[in-house]
Simulated assay, not measured.
Amino acid sequence: MKAEREGYYAIFVSHFPDAGSYDVRSVADMPVTGLGQATMLWCCKLGQHLGIVAINPGSAPWFHQQAGKYGLRGRGGRIYSVRFEPGQIPGAYGGEGKAVEIKDPFDKQAEALVAQSTEGPPYEADRDASSMINSHPASP
């Protein structure tokens, strides 16, 4: 691998779903981790249960599979999501007003997720992932 030949010590996949990280691990002779793995494991140090606010409800099955790969299926599973139009998130970098359009829906979902996690038990690990999506669409 090019990174090994150039003297790198590790590979970090900077995309939350860690796409391709298992493939890279199979051929690399160096540590490989990703943003999703690092974030989920760090969250385990802060609390007993995990929760995710996603930018798309369709990503929930991927996140459940990802948590399972990291041995975290019993640590949570609630996924709240926000719906955005294509290009809306990158467009938020255009000014403070646009950033609030993105931040507010995330904040609302995070607050709902925290409230839900304190009001009830975590999901059962054998439930269908699609039944664990608690989507509260936000207006773009």
Rank of each mutant, 00 (worst) to 15 (best):
A3G: 05
E4P: 02
R5C: 05
Y9S: 04
Y9N: 06
I11V: 08
F12S: 03
V13N: 14
H15S: 12
F16L: 12
F16P: 09
F16A: 12
F16I: 15
G20K: 08
G20P: 04
V24M: 07
V24D: 00
R25C: 14
S26H: 06
A28Y: 05
D29H: 12
D29S: 15
D29V: 06
M30W: 01
P31I: 05
P31M: 04
P31W: 06
P31R: 08
G34S: 08
G34Q: 08
L35C: 06
L41K: 14
L41N: 06
W42T: 02
W42I: 01
W42H: 13
C44D: 09
K45E: 09
L46V: 07
L46R: 15
H49S: 13
G51W: 00
V53L: 07
A54N: 03
I55R: 01
N56F: 15
N56K: 08
N56R: 13
P57V: 13
A60I: 02
W62Y: 15
F63R: 00
Q65C: 11
A67Q: 12
A67I: 07
G68K: 04
R73F: 02
R73N: 04
R73Y: 02
R73H: 11
R75N: 13
G77A: 07
G77S: 09
R78A: 10
R78M: 02
R78T: 08
R78S: 08
I79M: 00
Y80T: 08
S81D: 03
V82T: 10
F84M: 00
F84N: 10
F84P: 01
P86K: 09
P86L: 11
P86Y: 08
G87Y: 01
Q88A: 14
Q88V: 07
I89P: 01
G91V: 07
G91N: 13
G91W: 06
G94S: 12
G95Q: 06
E96C: 08
E96Q: 11
K98G: 10
A99C: 09
V100W: 03
I102F: 09
K108D: 14
Q109K: 02
Q109L: 15
E111M: 05
A112V: 11
L113C: 12
L113H: 13
A115Q: 12
Q116I: 15
S117D: 12
S117F: 02
S117L: 06
S117H: 04
E119N: 04
G120Q: 07
P122H: 02
Y123L: 13
Y123E: 12
E124C: 07
E124K: 13
S130G: 06
S130L: 11
M132Y: 05
I133T: 09
S135I: 01
P137G: 02
P137C: 12
